[in-house]
């Protein structure tokens, strides 16, 4: 077995030690810290990206909720506006009806009053006509001229009977 030839033990051992120590130093102080840094950098970056994605998702969710609540709010507002409008319209109608009622009432009263006036006026005229008629009738029948006052008094007496 050529591996057991003693002469090359020492040179191999010596150079192995040199190579291994050199390699160890490079690994420990140059290569491994760099690889480690790259790995942790990337881990942080992925973590950050995931956080970002998570945040974006939460934002989207929030936006959806906001949208829904604003929709609900708008719906409510519309409902109240419609309600108010209906109420207002009803009130308005009522008021107009009342006004109309008042108007017609007043017109009725006016008419009544006019009728009353007409009647009293007519009655007053009737008295005059009756006095005149009584006077004329008396003259024709009796030939006597009766004054208006007498005629009126007689008329009054007649009416009381």
């Amino acid at each position: 077995m050529p591996q057991l030839e003693f002469w090359h033990f020492l040179p191999q051992f010596f150079w192995l030690a040199v190579c291994f120590v050199f390699l160890y130093l490079i690994m420990a102080f140059v290569a491994l810290p760099r690889i480690g840094r790259v790995l942790t950098d990337r881990k942080h970056r992925i973590e950050q990206d995931l956080d970002g994605a998570e945040k974006a998702r939460a934002d989207a969710e929030q936006a959806r909720l906001d949208y829904e609540s604003s929709l609900e709010e708008a719906r409510n507002r519309a409902r109240t506006i419609i309600g108010e409008a209906v109420q207002q319209a009803a009130d308005e109608g009522e008021r107009q009806l009342e006004a109309l009622d008042r108007e017609t009432g007043r017109e009725l009263e006016d008419a009544q009053r006019a009728i009353d006036e007409a009647r009293t006026a007519a009655l007053a005229n009737l008295e005059g006509v009756a006095v005149e008629a009584a006077r004329l009738a008396t003259r024709r029948l009796t030939g006597a001229d009766v004054s208006d006052e007498d005629a009126l008094a007689a008329l009054a007496a007649v009416r009381e009977t």
Binding site: L50, A53, E54, R57, A60, E61, R64
Partner: peptide, 8 residues
Amino acid sequence: PSDLETRI
């Protein structure tokens, strides 16, 4: 969005 959550 719930699907996104599980994916994250």
